[in-house]
Design a protein around this nucleic acid. Structure first.
Lengths: 217, 217
DNA sequence: CCGCGTCTCCCCCTATTTGGGGATTGCGCC
DNA sequence: GGCGCAATCCCCAAATAGGGGGAGACGCGG
């Protein structure tokens, strides 16, 4: 693959926009893109506000988004971009390994999440991966995401209680749980009382939320 | 990196077990592992039952698990393995792109998910990635997982209704919602009636479940 | 300007849920 | 055998939730 300094660009190049407040990094990435055959920098912005204003007309296939920006955060910028109708790929590129930010970014509509320690060649791979329908992620980030699916191993609930709770999570009432488990409504009542005590909650919906959060079902 | 046919193995090799009913594939992977410096095959099993019996004593760092097995499925095998206390990495290796199986596998305790089209060199990379704390996934699988986090763009609810619903998802009662939004309980009641009508549900817990499933909050 | 949707508040009533008490059976474990 | 635990069933009282009606205020667009 040619990587000459004066790479000529054409319509099939991947158009990449960069949102990054550190000027050194921003220009370095822009140069990297423009100097690599198959890529072209479609815009470089130092903050979310200017990106939101100009990006809609930049026709970018991919946006590289920093999280720590002056003013609006990168996560909020992703939400706004999606609200504007932007449908390209958005890859977060940040130093933050913090789980909260990872999940917030994905919920907001990011397609990938790279740490800034990512090397240039890997960054270009990630961009290609994203446009080909993948979801580029740094290793430990991917693990965090996968772990968020894992069922809790140690539950304080008994087998029957877990069954009842899972029925509640399907939206069942006491009566419906009783029917579907073939026990009396009083027994369901009893199990639910124990569930509430063990989970430290006082209502069906609290129990459902906790069950989903703690992956008890 | 040496890859001689008679690779000698030592204690620092990655111990990999294979569960795969196709004999050709199973032996090919076993040979690949034993022939590659840094890896050693710690067991090869044609079905889940024999794997569950022998794996605990095999001391495997990584298990490659097929999903379509005769008898117990690979997903159930993962659950059982985790229930047995196995704490190594488990990578699903399968032809199934079906979302349901992907999520079920991750919930059961898998650390990665590769499609069988994965090439040998990439397979070895994935095993290394897993032991180093990553979560190897084929591109389209990773995208499915990431997309499962994305907030729904089009909600039938109004802004206020969404606020109320999100309070319900935090386990609030009518009174608590009223207090935290500084409106009367009657108004909360009214919003909730509208939410129920729009979401086609008839109880708080059903609404909470639907909100989480449809990513309305 | 007038309708439509949103948000606010109020009335009514019934059904469901919540929290407390207690009792019995069976099962495994020391 | 006795103990604890899980699971089943029962009674009661109060709080909450669900479903129906109506009504006023505000803003936005035809």
């Amino acid at each position: 693959m040619p990587t000459d300094r004066t790479a000529s660009h054409n319509a099939r190049d991947i158009r990449v926009a960069v949102v990054e407040d550190d000027e050194d990094i921003r220009t370095a990435v822009a140069f990297l893109l423009d100097d690599t055959s198959g890529f072209v920098c479609a815009g470089a912005f130092p903050d979310a506000e200017s990106a939101l204003e100009t990006l809609p007309s930049a026709n970018a296939d991919v946006v590289l988004m920093d999280i720590a920006l002056p003013g609006m955060s990168g996560v909020d910028a992703v939400s706004r971009l999606r609200a504007q109708g932007y449908e390209g790929e958005i890859i977060m590129v940040t130093v933050h390994k913090d789980s909260e930010l990872v999940f917030k970014s994905l919920c907001a509509g990011a397609s990938g999440y790279l740490l800034k320690e990512t090397r240039p060649a890997r960054l270009l791979d990630a961009i290609r991966d994203a446009v080909e329908g993948g979801a580029p992620m740094s290793g430990h980030i991917a693990r965090k995401i996968v772990q968020s699916f894992h069922r809790s191993t140690a539950s304080p609930l008994t087998g029957r209680e877990t069954e009842v709770l899972s029925k509640l999570c399907n939206g069942h009432s006491y009566k419906m749980v009783a029917d579907s488990l073939c026990i009396s409504e009083q027994t369901v009542h009893h199990h639910i009382k124990n569930i509430y005590r063990k989970l430290h909650v006082h209502s069906k919906s609290e129990a459902v939320v906790k069950a989903i959060q703690d992956k008890l079902v």
